[in-house]
Amino acid sequence: MKWVFVLLFLACAAYVHFRGRVRHRLGRQLLDHSTFMAPVNVLMYLCSRVPTRPFIVPEQHFPELEPLRAHWREIRDEALRLRELQQIKAAEGYNDVGFNSFFRRGWKRFYLKWYDEAHPSAAELCPLTTRLLREVPSVKAAMFAELPHGGELRPHRDPYAGSLRLHLGLATPNDDACFIEVDGGRYSWRDGEWTMFDETYIHAARNDSGRNRIILFCDVERPLRWGWARAFNRFVARNLIVAGASPNQEGDRTGAINHLFKYFYALRLKSKALKERSESAYYAIKYGVVAGVVALIVWW
């Protein structure tokens, strides 16, 4: 029975790696968080009621989201007011594990909600947007996301397939030089227009337009065919994804994972220092740890 689980895990990991046209190098994929979530994600794909392709047309499958697009100008006004107050910003400490690497390349955010009620800061500063989001329960997480000129997000895939990503253009360059690529397909943001994609495909973004870009960024619960699958998805969200909550201001919730992140990041800094001194030692330890974990699983 143990070998059945091992082979099932390997099959799911291989499917995640070869899914789509764009792939990580095998060495990177072995250590990517999506590999460890592969069996759960394959289950989400099998149970999905919407197409499992890179881009999805939101109005065809999510009519409940239409009020967000209908009120995009009012939402934009709240986002621009936040920007004037310098509240759309990078995390002020090591308390946003999910997006920590993005901050180094110019990306900024202001959380509106994260698998829970609105942050107190969001309810105070963005009353209209948080009210609209409250009326659309399928939106599990939302934020304003800013990408300035010269900013970029390197190719990556998100770890969990229980949601789909919605981008609604608010204050964008309206320029093809500001774009996102999902599995090799490109979309350029426009004011008042939206796109939806499966964030477990490899995606990347750049802004070379000379102007700033602000969007409404939402994670929308993936519709699933069966009640047991929906219950499982919500269990994972309540007990794992919610632990990634990150604050805008003091008084906002910080999830358990982000409370621990500063300690893991200190270890990460030590590993980067080792890599600078000796790449061979760094990779020997890195792949040795992976081999050790695999051996424990196989022989347990």
Rank of each mutant, 00 (worst) to 15 (best):
P54I: 01
Y111D: 08
K108Y: 11
W72V: 05
E64N: 10
E74N: 09
L112R: 05
P120E: 03
E66N: 04
W107R: 00
A79R: 12
L80Q: 14
W114N: 06
Q87I: 06
P58I: 11
P63W: 12
S101N: 13
L65K: 03
E74W: 07
T129K: 03
V97P: 02
A123L: 04
S121V: 05
W107Q: 03
Y94F: 14
I88D: 10
S121K: 02
T129F: 07
F99R: 11
W107C: 06
Y45T: 02
F62E: 00
T130I: 00
P127E: 12
F102Q: 11
Y111C: 04
C47G: 05
R69P: 05
F99E: 13
L132A: 02
E117I: 00
A79S: 07
L85A: 13
E59I: 06
A91H: 05
E59L: 04
E117R: 04
F99Y: 13
I56H: 07
R83W: 09
A90C: 14
W114F: 05
S101M: 09
Q60F: 06
E66K: 09
L82M: 10
E59D: 12
E84Y: 03
E117P: 00
D96N: 14
K89L: 11
N95R: 13
R134F: 03
R81D: 14
H71F: 10
N100K: 14
Q87P: 06
G93E: 15
L85K: 04
Y45E: 14
F103Q: 07
R131T: 05
E117T: 01
L65I: 03
S48R: 01
V42I: 13
V57D: 15
C126T: 10
K89G: 08
W107E: 09
V57M: 12
K113L: 02
T52K: 02
L43F: 10
F102A: 11
R104G: 12
R73C: 13
R134W: 02
L132Q: 02
V97M: 09
Q86K: 11
L132E: 00
V42C: 09
H119W: 02
Q87D: 12
H119T: 01
L128T: 13
H119E: 04
E78H: 05
H61Y: 15
T130V: 03
I88K: 06
R83Q: 13
N95T: 07
P63Q: 11
E84M: 08
A122F: 00
Y94N: 07
I88P: 03
R134P: 01
L68Y: 05
A90W: 07
W114H: 08
E124H: 13
S48I: 03
L125M: 10
E64R: 11
L82S: 09
R76P: 05
R105S: 15
E78G: 00
I88Y: 03
A91K: 03
D77Q: 13
V97A: 12
P63C: 08
H71D: 15
L68A: 10
N95M: 09
Y45V: 04
R131L: 07
D96R: 05
P120M: 13
H71K: 11
L43S: 09
Q87Y: 09
K113S: 01
G106W: 02
L46Q: 10
K89S: 10
P127R: 14
